[in-house]
Design a protein around this nucleic acid. Structure first.
Lengths: 201, 201
DNA sequence: TGTACATCAGTGAACGCGCGTTCACTGATGTAC
DNA sequence: TGTACATCAGTGAACGCGCGTTCACTGATGTAC
């Protein structure tokens, strides 16, 4: 369905976005291994050669999903931290937002961290670094720059691990009935750990 | 190459194990999406129909890798905990062993937690539960049974997250030059967090 | 405002490929007597 | 120990399929004048 106009034209309007949506839906249904450009084209209501006007090849499609995911993650992280002045609060907020993002965009998160994407574009690598740097920078304001990297990794491990376990269905269903439940689980898990980054609770 | 004998017989000797090895190597090289039974057969030096004497289909091969991985993980976890009397030490040892396992068997870990495996066999599910229960049971001896599940999840998240980040190459290379370096990183990360499960350090 | 034209985003046929799976088969193995 | 025979683990041909990618093409779009 064209986004901007409903003309009789065979021009799609926003095929690129439609293909990305179709790809994400397809991966959600059948898994990364069964993603196919032809099926994406079919779902977007377009011939199987049309995607090549927007993506050089299949890898480029995956790359776009990853880049999109990283920039969304950075966005929700920044949004969650906004208005909080205490560094510890900011980091906690980022962690909770991370898990919520995982719950809401599971396919994106999986593609962001898949090794099926052979060589990510520079844009994707930069977007990925930004999401992580945001975390390390925040950690630095709490523990100091010299241990910030390690502290950032530790925090990243915790939130990333919880996110992956949720994605893989390893968490009892009652903790993931909806995004709010997942977020509550994230808060509990973060609270279990009283590290140098933890807020006094 | 036959394991037991070097006869002229066309019987392989241990084709099942050879196929599993080939599959793991193939996934390591090309990714899960490019795993193919025919290529595994080729690498095992056998006709493309032979694997069907050992695995019902491609999913069954994946399932076997996952089950194998879970049981290995449980084994290394138990081995690491053996001889340690302090519950906190035992849990820490399990976490370090987990990360080391991830470094040494990255393909197994990925298959264990992939959603490409549509419906794991009962054996695989049981093996998976055992690995996790080991963790929760240990946690229970420290924090008590009522919060053990949550504590177990938190600890699992941390070690699993760090493992996945290592697998995905998100950790600076100097921390993963070998298994010992990865293990040292695991110790540092675990040490960053002083939770109810943490050893007094 | 109208028109000529370059550009762009689609089409549909065609290519070659490797895959999963089935099937009838055959040669090797191991066991009962 | 020797032999007959059931079972087992391979073979190789064949099936149908969907895929990624290319190509010459055409109709729509937007812009310069």
């Amino acid at each position: 369905m064209p986004r901007k106009r409903a003309k009789k034209s065979y021009h799609h309007g926003d095929l690129r976005a439609a293909l990305l949506d179709a790809a994400v839906a397809l991966i959600a249904e059948r898994g990364l291994a069964h993603l196919s450009l032809r099926e994406c084209a079919r779902r977007a209501g377009v011939s199987h050669a049309a995607p090549y006007r927007h993506f050089a090849d299949k890898q480029a499609l995956l790359d776009a999903i990853a880049a999109d995911g990283f920039s969304r993650l950075t966005d929700v992280g920044l949004a969650a931290m906004q208005g909080l002045s205490q560094p510890r609060d900011r980091i906690d907020a980022y962690g909770v937002a991370y898990v919520r993002f995982a719950y809401e965009y599971p396919v994106h998160l999986r593609v962001m961290f898949t090794t099926e994407l052979d060589d990510p574009s520079e844009a994707t690598q930069i977007a990925g670094s930004r999401a992580f740097d945001l975390l390390v920078d925040s950690a630095a304001t709490v523990v100091g720059r010299e241990t910030a990297l390690l502290a950032g990794f530790a925090f990243w491990s915790l939130t990333h691990g919880l996110s992956m376990l949720i994605l893989d269905g390893r968490v009892p269903p009652e903790h993931t009935v909806d995004a709010d439940a997942a977020e509550a689980l994230a808060r509990s898990v973060l609270a279990m750990w009283r590290g140098p980054l933890a807020t006094a609770r």
